[in-house]
Design a protein around this nucleic acid. Structure first.
Ligand SMILES: [Mg+2]
Ligand SMILES: [Mg+2]
Length: 506
DNA sequence: ATCCTCCCCTAC
DNA sequence: TAAGGTAGGGGAGGAT
């Protein structure tokens, strides 16, 4: 990694207030009064979340982030996003009063990009299954018939979504390096969520414009995005608020490339944000094609080009291969898909397990038998907080836990499900770990989780309180050492069905 | 064999 | 200041 301090020292950076004020004034203001003074770039110390999901702090501290890091470590460094499920019904309002208490515990989440990414995924999935309520068996007849006709998959992903949406009314910024962050001063430890392509390509951190999040706008644009997709295709799998797969096999006789172009043009016209698309005959290749087409482009991978495409592709580019697997493969001198192809399936399965080995073997050859799933069953519902968590005493902790239970209870009711298995996860400061460099971060932690399965599914606050408390006590942790708490329910059952059965039994 | 629990890893 | 959430998949190892 290049240390950019020497390059960037003293160069001007514009503060987010510039954009905010510009919006207020309804025009672009001069940058000059908003430039940050000398030394601003020093604030780029360890501002981003570690690529290695592990101990993000307490690793070797970085004095400055480079553009390579900017690209690699932002949420959208490789572009992606997602959606969620709760508050689906009108009676959510009736609950919102008591929800306020829970919101207190989870209050930081209203500013959490990761919270929204998670919530939006469920909400859009939900939205979609409502959308095609008639066609119930939309997931059926896929795999078995897939050989009869060659499937055509289109993958669409908005380009650097979090940035594009915020600056969509400011075309003057399109060609300037822009990033999204909470912090209006880059001195601190705020993370950069997304950076546009000029920012990624740029060699220097100078002139980087930082803009704030606009969560309302993300939702608005995501709605527009999905409305457009659904106009062109009824087999849509929502991956996130800005990313989806379309199964175009039955959708049209037209050239899918032409359709992808039309979709992208309509998105661009409607949202003033660009999208990229990949077209191939399975989901894996379509997704890889999108990646290679960004920004504002599209790519078709015909079967005969697959091997060429994969041969030099880094294994990390494959979905399912993250940092850990990448390192393990690297230690065996495997960096590209072409190299991975030289390992037998048996060897991979022995080394990485049956399913993972199979996945590696197939993906590095461009083989992917997954089908586009328009509806996906929810298997767990939960909430967790790992930022800003510090407790003085047991009362503090118990208040927090109650509020967490309230939040989870409301989410369960919002999804109309109840669960039988309750899992409590607690992050505890690792012995010897310092206060983290990241402001209010959880730092280097030991994670403990324990679950309890009950005979009858519940969404009841009192039950959740009792069980989560009981589990926590079994950990024997000093609350002063707690840095994160999560509560999740699984083994879900339909709450409506449950109620009906209860009525019948009465 | 199959299921379950407690992780870890991954994606968005 | 800053807002490190949410959910799914799978492996290891033990219980059945
Ligand atoms: Mg994207
Ligand atoms: Mg990967």
């Amino acid at each position: 990694m290049k240390n950019l301090r020497a390059f960037s020292r003293g160069l001007p950076v514009v503060r987010p207030a510039w954009l905010v004020d510009s919006i207020a004034a309804n025009k672009l203001l001069s940058w000059f009064p908003y430039q940050l003074s000398d030394g601003v770039n020093e604030r780029y110390q360890q501002g981003t979340v570690g690529l290695e999901g592990s101990s993000s702090n307490d690793e070797v501290p970085k004095n400055i982030i480079s553009y390579a890091q900017l690209q690699a470590s932002t949420d959208e460094g490789q572009d992606s996003e997602e959606f969620g499920c709760y508050e689906s019904e009108i009676d959510f309002d009736a609950k919102s009063v008591e929800a306020n208490d829970a919101v207190y515990a989870i209050s930081c989440s209203v500013n959490s990009r990761l919270h929204f990414i998670g919530i939006w995924r469920n909400r859009y999935r939900q939205h979609f299954s409502d959308f095609l309520c008639g066609a119930k068996s939309s997931n059926a007849n896929i795999d078995s018939l897939s050989d009869r006709k060659k499937t055509i998959i289109v993958h669409i992903d908005m380009d650097c979504f979090f940035v594009s949406v915020v600056i969509r009314n400011f075309p003057d910024l399109f060609n300037k390096p822009v990033a999204v962050s909470h912090s209006d001063s880059l001195n601190g430890t705020a993370e950069i969520s997304s950076a546009n392509y000029p920012a990624r390509d740029y060699g220097l951190l100078s002139h980087l414009v930082i803009v704030p999040y606009n969560f309302e706008a993300y939702e608005e644009v995501a709605d527009q995005f999905y409305s457009i997709l659904h106009k062109y295709c009824n087999k849509v799998q929502a991956i996130s608020c800005d990313e989806a797969f379309l199964d175009m096999t039955e959708c049209s006789r037209d050239d899918p490339r032409k359709l992808a172009l039309m979709i992208r043009e309509e998105i661009s016209k409607k949202t003033r944000c660009t999208a990229s698309a990949g077209i191939a005959d399975n989901m894996l290749l379509a997704r890889l094609a999108t990646r290679s087409a960004k920004p504002n482009g599209q790519c078709f991978i015909p079967s005969e080009k697959v091997q060429d495409f994969l041969n030099d592709l880094p294994v990390k580019a494959l979905p399912g291969i993250g940092h850990s697997l990448d390192e393990k493969l690297k230690s065996r001198q495997i960096q590209s898909c072409g190299q991975l192809q030289n390992i037998s399936k048996e060897e991979l399965q022995n080394e990485f397990g049956k399913m993972t080995g199979d996945m590696l073997w197939s993906y590095c050859r461009g083989i992917d038998n997954r089908a586009v799933k328009t509806v996906q069953e929810t298997k767990s519902v939960g909430a967790e907080v790992n930022w800003g968590v510090r407790f003085n005493d047991n009362t503090d902790f118990e208040n927090f836990l109650v509020n967490l239970c309230k939040e989870v209870s409301l989410r369960l009711q919002g999804c109309r499900v109840q669960g039988r298995t309750v899992t409590l996860k607690v992050k505890k400061r690792r012995k010897g770990a310092e206060e983290p460099a990241k402001f209010l971060g959880c730092g280097d932690c030991e994670t403990m989780s324990r679950s309890m399965t009950i005979p009858v599914a519940t969404d009841d606050l009192i039950s959740l309180r009792r069980i989560s408390k009981q589990i926590f006590v079994s950990f024997h942790i000093d609350v002063k050492e707690v840095r994160g708490v999560g509560l999740k329910l699984s083994r879900l059952e339909s709450a409506d069905l449950h109620r009906k059965v209860a009525l019948i039994n009465n």
